[in-house]
Design a protein around this nucleic acid. Structure first.
Lengths: 350, 350
DNA sequence: TTTAGCACTTGATTATAACGAGTGCTAATT
DNA sequence: AATTAGCACTCGTTATAATCAAGTGCTAAA
């Protein structure tokens, strides 16, 4: 079992490592800890913390660095409820003070403000999108190599798009494909649909048609029209601030992923607890995606009442100052919702 | 005056430096030159080339590197007409072989293909946009803090957008502002209008209204709607391939510029010679913009007959293999035009 | 004009030593 | 039993010097 002091040490290590980026040694800790104990004692405690896997050495005689499990433990049990920085509050409120013409302006601006404030990469999803579900899908052959795809969402929106397709597809094939899609996808949130479209559906569809690719492209396209347009990324280039420079290829892949709304939607997967869930932190190793191994993703839902809810997310290094970040995200959750509710209210005035 | 051999040496230096990225010395040149002369002779010739400013040393005992003027001279007088690489031709034609649903898909794909093929950053402007001019501008107060901005273009398109504005602006002020804008901007290409909106107009407008900013935003917004949407960038992240890593700030600024359509439009400034102009190369120092100092921008127009023309551009380091790049751009100019003409033809079939 | 030869310059590479921050362990202290 | 001082040891980092390699300019001969 861990002692009070050992936990205090873990906390200090995490704080100091986040501030300096350097491994933390026993001397430095001695100077920083509120209680006075000798460096030898701290070393003993650190040995214990290491033996349970909460901290690590970078080499045999180096200071300690928090491990993945160390961060997880910190996030789950140790972290103080955020202490809001008044400068940040002022900045955010001032940034939101402007007048906006469109909803999307507000949402995308949020991503920009947040990324500026943090020097990380921010992602925002417009309200309503997170839990909008697919309620219907139609594919209407118009003859002359043209097909109209129509999708209906639970938000009541209807999007359509006309496509020209290379080979005529038989009405029979279309019929089956449509039924399959309706069976498999209707009722699911658009984000999930978009995701399944890449994984399950192609396999199933392969039974009915030779090359389902063209078909899927069409579907994907109109789906994008209904959802993707409301996904915003701010500060992509901040990746450069918190990434290792040595592997340009990996950096490029990450960048591509971030700008590919399908992949991104997959990440933002609405948090299960609904509207008033707390800020979620997912550490790299917990996310399956190899590209994110050394990063950390924080997400939080915001709630605009009848207009649905959206997501605010922050992508940064594993060693973020979580306390401040959580405070910021909570602040944003509130301010963005307020601003949007305001906006909707003004609309109704007309 | 420069001798035949000296020019041959300049050419070889440019080629070798582009291939290796290293300063070129007299021994290396001796091995590469078609005629046999001693390294001492080459050294003498290089001294001459340096004295007229076509090449430079990086330090007192280093090999030579082409200077800005060296590149300019090479481009204007020395470069061979491009020799088309059959592999490139095949790749391009295959990439264009797919079926596309929308014009913009074709245009944006072009940017992607071109950037992949070159490892540089490619920019494409959809057809018609380059020489579309502003033919009319109206601003209609609708009461209730709302204003409709309408812009009419020489292509016959009418775009409109409704805005809510903070303080009511007096009709008188509006009147004057509209007149000013009509006087100053009507008749100019949209790209130029967008540019002037950042420079000249704010100054002029300041005479009539206290804070022209909000006003300009509106105008800018609807202008974007009419033009920006057709500007595509491919391979932004390729910047990482050909940029110095040491200055992250500068890299970010460049990235922002590339993704800000106003700035970008300014760069692509339709080439004066119209439809069938040759590929233009502008070297960093020639572009005024400090961020581009170490880069080079190649542009070429493509022509889609009655549907207007567009621009293809390539941003890379100063030391690009220009011969191949010019060949590629010429190829793209042709293939993209062909594909678009095809597309328009199919549309008319319906 | 061209070329061989040579002294000289300079950045890059390598080797070596010295340094510094840190650890674990032992023995003494509280 | 917990804490601490002391010390030998590890290992990455920094500093210094030595060597190397690629290149130049210049002089004198061909």
């Amino acid at each position: 079992m861990l002692t009070e002091r050992q936990l205090m040490i873990l906390k200090a290590i995490i704080r100091l490592f986040t501030e300096s980026g350097q491994p933390v040694g026993s001397k430095k800790l001695m100077a920083e800890l509120p209680v006075h104990v000798s460096s030898a004692t701290i070393r003993n405690d650190m040995a214990d913390l290491e033996s349970v896997g909460l901290i690590e050495k970078t080499h045999s005689s180096s200071g300690r660095v928090p491990s993945m499990q160390g961060y997880r433990y910190y996030l789950d049990h140790l972290m103080q409820p955020a202490t809001l920085n008044p400068v940040d509050v002022a900045t955010v409120q001032q940034s939101f003070g402007q007048h906006y013409h469109k909803i999307d302006e507000i949402v995308s601006q949020s991503a920009n403000i947040l990324s500026n404030l943090t020097s990380y990469t921010a992602i925002t999803l417009g309200p309503g999108v997170a839990e909008v579900r697919l309620t219907g899908f139609r594919l209407v052959p118009l003859g002359n190599h043209q097909v109209m795809a129509i999708i209906v969402t639970s938000a009541g929106t209807v999007d359509n798009q006309v496509f020209t397709i290379p080979q005529a597809i038989s009405g029979d094939e279309l019929e089956k494909a449509i039924r399959l899609i309706n069976d498999q996808l209707v009722g699911l949130p658009l984000t999930v649909v978009s995701q399944k479209l890449k994984t399950d559906v192609p396999v199933l569809l392969a039974h009915y048609m030779a090359s389902p690719t063209g078909f899927l492209d069409i579907f994907d396209d109109v789906l994008k029209k209904a959802s993707q347009e409301r996904l915003y990324v701010g500060g992509q280039m901040n990746l450069l601030n918190f990434s290792e420079f040595d592997d340009v290829t990996q950096l490029k892949s990450l960048y591509n992923m971030i700008n590919q709304s399908d992949d991104l939607a997959k990440l933002l997967n609405l948090s299960p607890e609904g509207a008033n869930s707390k800020v979620q932190v997912r550490l790299g190793a917990e996310m399956a995606n190899d590209l994110l191994k050394h990063y950390s993703l924080m997400t939080v839902n915001y709630d605009v009442g009848e207009h649905g809810q959206g997501v605010i997310a922050l992508l940064g290094p594993t060693s973020m100052p979580y306390s401040r970040m959580i405070g910021l995200l909570d602040l944003f959750r509130e301010e963005l919702a307020k601003k949007l509710i305001d906006y909707y209210a003004n609309l109704d005035d007309d």
